[in-house]
Design a protein around this nucleic acid. Structure first.
Length: 673
DNA sequence: GTTCGTTGCCTTTTT
DNA sequence: GGCAACGAAC
């Protein structure tokens, strides 16, 4: 009798990845888990991103087409890096994959449905500053009667409206709970909100919140649209889920549907965005919302030495609300206990950090393996000065973003107006660049524009120059205004369709803005280079609308590629950043500075935030220390010089005081700085 | 009435 | 570097 012998077909992954070998047990089971809802609770440094990256690779390996995968992150950078890593793993074209921030995915879906939403010619996106301009213009025309009561400024109003939307509560509730002192003027606030919403409609614009709110409304109100996307997105993955707010949570739920294949990854101990509406409840109640969900815990930390991890664990243990986790170190230690460095003054602090960086560098540590982390941007001031004077190169994720700088916004205003002729904010911005034109003249010109044929949708009635020269510009501005008008002619073709974005930028700088810059800014040359960079970035786009929305949605001036047109970083440099922006990153050496009570935790969290605010600050501290792989320096200045009260003595942060003594090693700093 | 420069005070975190 | 308040200049 012949022996039966069946050849087992090898059904290994097309990419040849040996998932079992490359991942630990819990990572492996999460990555290869069958379709369905899954919650991955992963501690700091345990390979959260790695797990998600391999999950995407695994899906592609199993024949899921990339366009059926939706990957949601909080920053563009996180999305880009994850997709790059996936590309390195598998050969599939990841450009077809839907990966990006909540806002950018929202933008994409809304653009595809713009007609249905009543935006015949698309819409422009306002950033915070544009939003503020629009709000101020609303306030100017609102004719409010608030008697002797204090009325919130534009910034505060924006924050209120935004928060209400993001946590899905009514404005009334929000005012009652968080802004009781504005109770007496609530009616006026409501009125302003209506006017603001109307104004956005009239000007064809959306703010950041609209990108989420309108997607959620679209999906909720239209079964066909909802089902379309639920079919399209067979697999939905969300990174940093602990930082989602109600709105983002709803967006995810609607996009994948109740029985969808949703995998969320997060760590409740790293939830640091409740001030902008993030709700840890989303991750804590996930199992309840998706009863069939599987939970995976990843509790091995690959990043930090045991000494750093022990400190982090001890610190976070002081928080009451959390999912219990025991984070175990995979690495061995024994080299260094985290240093507790108390110095006299902020400048001594800067000197210590700079000197220690130089020593480490001499010992062979690369500068890009070193980071200085702090609570607030202004904490970096002395350190920036010290590093500069000692010639230590550093890169900083500053408060001001590339596209928020005046010259970038000015040029963008020309472009935005050419693309969207109802864009009041951009119009006002560009006419106010004219000599002798302030708010009053600009308003008059805008009213005249609204009454003209130019504002109408569809092909441009006449040339821009003809239409614009008919507006009432003050005498002093006439000559320049003529040039602006001619410049705008160059931004569109005969029927008013925008030309390529790079050529628009060229026209604006060559036409009028270059001259303006040279008279207005001391560092005009630097700014011209910025605009060259912007132009280089723009040349990747053929469509002006697409370019402008990308510009608005781009995150900070951080690393290569993210900043428009930035050259790849060649020189190694120390990183200076806030902890919020350091989320998900790691360095061999971390200096945590300004660890004085009142600075970190922030004074406001101590005084009027209640216990939850303090726990959030502690999570922020936890995130700070868990960025460190090898060495951690906790630094605080004893004396802080304040403008008002002179020299003030500071105590170490309560987050340090509460730690067991043996977990830190006090360094004695002797004079001579 | 409107624009525009000066001065003094303050500065959390961000898609 | 932003913002409000003030005052000079048009």
């Amino acid at each position: 009798m012949p022996r039966e012998y069946r050849i087992q077909q090898h059904r290994g992954p097309a990419s040849g990845i040996d998932y079992q070998a490359e991942l630990n047990e819990s990572q492996y089971s999460a990555v290869t888990s069958p379709p369905g809802a899954a919650l991955v609770i992963a501690g700091a440094g345990s390979g959260k991103t790695r797990t998600l990256t391999y999950r995407v690779a695994y899906l592609l390996d199993n024949g899921i087409p990339p366009e059926n995968i939706l990957l949601l992150t909080f920053t563009n950078k996180a999305a880009r890096e994850m997709l790059e890593r996936v590309s390195a793993l598998v050969s599939t074209d990841t450009n077809r994959l839907w990966g990006g921030t909540f806002h950018s995915i929202g933008n994409r879906i809304l653009r595809l449905n713009a007609q249905r939403l009543g935006y015949q010619r698309g819409f422009s996106i306002m950033d915070r500053e544009d939003q503020k301009d629009l709000m101020e213009s609303v306030l100017a025309g609102a004719e409010l009667d608030v008697g002797n009561y204090r009325f919130p400024k534009a910034d505060v109003l924006i924050e209120m409206f935004s928060l209400a939307l993001n946590v899905c509560v009514s404005l009334h509730e929000l005012i009652e709970e968080r802004y009781p002192y504005f109770g007496p003027v609530e009616e006026s606030i409501q009125k302003v909100r209506e006017l603001y919403e109307r104004k956005k409609q009239e000007t064809n614009t959306m703010d950041f919140d609209d990108l989420l709110v309108r997607v959620v409304d679209l999906l909720r109100d239209n079964v066909d649209v909802r089902e379309y996307y639920q079919r399209q997105f067979q697999f939905v993955l969300v990174d940093e889920y602990q930082d989602t707010n109600k709105l983002q949570c709803d967006m995810v739920d609607l996009l994948c549907g109740e029985n969808g294949n949703l995998m969320v990854v997060g760590d409740d101990a790293q939830s640091i965005y409740s001030w902008r509406g993030a709700d840890v409840g989303n991750i804590l109640n996930f199992q309840r919302r998706y009863p069939k969900a599987k939970t995976f815990k990843i509790e091995t930390n690959y990043r930090s030495v045991p000494e750093v991890l022990a400190l982090a664990n001890a610190s976070i243990a002081n928080n009451s609300a959390q999912i219990p986790k025991t984070l175990l170190p995979a690495r061995s230690g024994g080299k260094m206990t985290p240093a507790l460095v108390s110095v006299d003054t902020p400048s001594a602090q800067a000197a210590f950090v700079a000197q220690r960086i130089l020593e480490l560098h001499e010992e062979g540590v690369e500068l890009d393996e070193i980071a200085v982390l702090y609570r607030a941007h202004f904490h970096s001031l002395e350190i920036q000065m010290e590093l500069t004077s000692r010639g230590i190169p550093f890169q900083i994720t500053s408060g001001l973003r590339f596209f928020e700088q005046a010259h970038v916004k000015d040029v963008a205003a020309f472009m935005k107006f050419a693309v969207n002729r109802r864009d009041e904010v951009s119009f006002m911005r560009l006419v106010r660049l004219l000599p002798g034109v302030g708010n009053a003249s600009a308003s008059r010109m805008w009213s005249a524009w609204l009454a003209s044929d130019g504002v109408k949708d569809g092909p441009l009635a006449q040339k821009f120059s003809a239409l614009l020269m008919a507006l009432p510009a003050p005498k002093k501005a006439q000559e320049t205004w003529q040039q602006y008008a001619w410049t705008l002619d160059e931004l569109v073709d005969e029927v008013g369709t925008p030309v390529a974005p790079a050529s628009m930028i060229h026209s604006v700088t060559e036409g009028v803005y270059g001259d303006y810059m040279r008279t207005k800014f001391k560092n005009a040359e630097q700014r011209e280079q910025d605009l060259d960079q912007l132009s280089a970035f723009a040349s990747r786009f053929s469509d002006a609308t697409e370019f402008l929305s990308q510009l608005a949605l781009l995150t900070g001036v951080d690393t290569e590629g993210n900043q428009p047109g930035a050259q790849p970083q060649e020189k190694e440099a120390v990183t200076l950043t806030t902890t919020h922006q350091a989320k998900g990153l790691e360095w061999k050496i971390v200096f945590a500075v300004w660890l004085a009570d009142g600075m970190f935790p922030h004074r406001r969290a101590i005084d009027d935030g209640g216990p939850e605010a303090l726990e959030e600050e502690r999570r922020l501290f936890y995130v700070t220390v868990t960025r460190a792989k090898d060495e951690l320096y906790l630094v605080f200045p004893v004396i802080n010089h304040q403008a008002r009260d002179g020299n003030v003595l500071q105590r170490a942060s309560r987050f340090i005081e509460e730690l067991p003594d043996e977990l830190v090693d006090p360094w004695k700093i002797t004079a001579g700085w």
